[in-house]
Design a protein around this nucleic acid. Structure first.
Lengths: 159, 159
DNA sequence: TTGTTTTACTTGAAGCTTCAACTAAAACAA
DNA sequence: TTGTTTTAGTTGAAGCTTCAAGTAAAACAA
């Protein structure tokens, strides 16, 4: 019978802080984006990832990877975004299994108009609380955790 | 016309890492808890916060604060946990507006049996990826962000 | 070639969260 | 006291996410 190793003080502080950030930060960003354009943080990220991709399109699988989402979740959301005229589904020329999500001009205009307010919110809610060293530390530690959660996560790919 | 200040490399890395952790970590912990006891991470935290409170009870508002949740969300979840016999609702003696949530013996047994597996998962998914210094840095930076999001958040109260 | 497995995605239902509206008691103001 | 505001919580509906099941094409195996 092995005693479970309990959390020490720093471990507990780190874990509880992450848990709280996890709930509060997306909620605050959702509120901002909902007010600015009636979309969620996840919706925004789908549009943002497409806007940064070459040709503004990506296969559903790749888009799911870049938004850390399940294919099912993404499929439902793309259907919604398609209904708003921001995204279109297209066939992949080489592989008939693949669906390509394509950001429309209307979708591009939407993200361009929302980006400044969203970035301001990210700054106001977290970055402004931190020194430059803090930001560098968080980037380093955050990427370690991401690597542990998913060792070939797209953000770890060298650019 | 002011140009929006865009994110620099470290800011972008920190933000994208946090966003990914935010999606992947709760999902992985939900999976573990779902398999171990058919409950969500949020359900677990409600039970955990009650189990650590004196007398194993807390007003709904205080429990909502300690789980970073809205009262509405908590109310729905407490109804569900009540249905499973893990929590009871009681009247507050001094203030008739207040509902007190009380962890039952069955609820206590549930959390005691789930805690070791949950802590192991938290270790495996994030803490084991970090050095002791990383953990201390994350605790410090995380609490700064929490303070920015909610300046009198319960985890910042001195103990 | 034919059968099997894997990959990529979609769908509908069930469960969870948010939102707006509501109730009721406590606190405050005149 | 009476009226107003604030606090504490609940509820139902709408929207979102997950889950299980399904489709169809590509890859692989014999």
């Amino acid at each position: 019978m092995t005693e479970p190793r309990w959390l020490n003080a720093d471990e507990r502080r780190a874990w509880l802080a992450l848990l709280s950030i996890n709930t509060l930060l997306p909620a605050a960003l959702d509120t901002q984006l909902q007010a600015a354009g009636k979309l969620s943080l996840f919706d925004y990220n789908v549009l943002a990832m497409l806007s940064e991709a070459e040709g503004r399109f990506l296969p559903m699988s790749e888009l799911a990877a870049r938004t850390s989402a399940s294919l099912s979740r993404l499929s439902h959301v793309v259907t919604k975004l398609q209904g708003r005229g921001w995204v279109e589904r297209e066939a992949h020329p080489g592989d008939a299994r693949v669906t390509v999500a394509h950001l429309t001009d209307a979708g591009m205009n939407t993200i361009v108009s929302l980006a400044p307010g969203h970035v301001d919110a990210v700054r106001a809610l977290m970055l402004d609380a931190m020194t430059d060293d803090d930001v560098a530390d968080l980037a380093r530690i955050g990427e370690k955790i991401v690597a542990r959660l998913d060792d070939d996560h797209w953000i770890l790919r060298e650019h």
